[in-house]
Write a protein that binds this DNA or RNA. Structure first.
Lengths: 202, 202
DNA sequence: TCCTCAACAGGTCGATCATCCTGTTTTAAG
DNA sequence: CTTAAAACAGGATGATCGACCTGTTGAGGA
């Protein structure tokens, strides 16, 4: 009956906060984003914020575990379950990411890498959460390489170290592209990785 | 005659501030380091700090232009002027960095990459300074590759994109090593890059 | 010697930060 | 229906941030 009935939607409020925090952390950084700004972005009161995330650190952990890991999974793990071989999937991922960055005009960087660089020396638990996402990413890639070796699509190939190279070159290229605000480094790495993988897959 | 005679050493004070800021920015990050903390680290008064660096941004620019660029030059550009070919120099650089990180026990990351990730979306001028260092780095590497091609030590090689791959994979591997606090990713990339370059240089 | 300004000392300022507090409303168990 | 706890509202709080202020001391040119 009362008009301004109080919202009582725990999961929804929590999701709104985490979503707003993910956007802000990825585009501006963790430290550069204040809790007050997040309250406004998510349209929640101080009481609601304190209830769901008493300290900022908890929110950082939730963003990594819920959103960042999901983003990595969708863009870098899911494509390897479509049946194609690893080089084709990798090239397709680079292509779509370069396309997205080109059309929206600015490079905000790899979400995982952004979080990793800023927090890994401050908080051991957040560093662990970031490390776990890197681990899952690396595992998916190396498993894909290993499958290709077992099914004789490739040979003379170390799945572990090659997966590391792919992840590292992507992360580094994204960092360079972010610093230059230009997708050139990503394009270069796409070409070089494609040539490198083609050599191993023939 | 007076005992606590005031120090009057502009260059010295400035160098102490920039040195302290470089250490702090690289190990903790730019935003995580306060001006008060830097005053204490460099043992300078608020007046001296305000005189040399009225705003924090000026200090960030000085650190990038004086220290970060010099660090990149010493570790990643100087070795290519010793006469050896590019792959040998690159492998040697990886070896020494891995050795240093292993013996001092912790991974604080690539100074350039640390600064780049944190500030490139906040300040256009600092982003430009970071971008210039990346540019010098890339130019030195690609010039070294080009020399090797001209003198028939290598062929079928794109100096530009290959240089990007080397820088990106190093930066990315350093980011991963920092997140995991383990030099494994750097070792993997060293091995993979050595094999890749060996194939192009035979 | 006088004088000007860079160099430095020490403290202060408002703003913003993350966190916490009291009080009220909703939910759900008993 | 009662009641305890979760969910939320709307501030308040001390700490810390970057920036700045007035005053003093040094160096160097006229």
């Amino acid at each position: 009956m009362s008009e301004n009935r109080r919202t009582n939607d725990p999961e929804g409020v929590r999701r709104r906060i985490v979503a707003a925090a993910y956007d802000a952390f990825v585009t501006q950084g963790y430290l550069a984003t204040g809790m007050l700004e997040l309250r406004e972005r998510a349209s929640v009161s101080g009481g609601a914020m304190a209830h769901h995330f008493p300290v900022k650190r908890d929110l950082g952990l939730a963003v990594i575990r819920d959103r960042v890991s999901e983003a990595v999974r969708q863009t870098w793990i899911e494509p390897f379950h479509t049946g194609t071989n690893a080089p084709a999937a990798i090239d397709s991922i680079f292509e779509s990411i370069i396309g997205e960055l080109t059309q929206n005009g600015r490079v905000s960087g790899c979400p995982l890498n952004n979080m990793a660089m800023e927090i890994s020396q401050h908080d051991a638990e957040m560093r662990g959460a970031v490390s776990a996402v890197f681990g899952a990413w690396h595992e998916a890639l190396s498993a894909s390489f290993e499958t290709d070796v077992k099914e004789n699509r490739a040979r003379e190939l170390n799945p572990q170290s090659l997966a590391t190279l792919v992840i590292a070159s992507y992360s580094g290229a994204m960092a360079m592209s972010k610093a230059r605000q230009d997708v050139g480094p990503l394009i270069d790495c796409r070409v070089e990785l494609a040539a490198l993988l083609a050599a191993k897959y023939r």
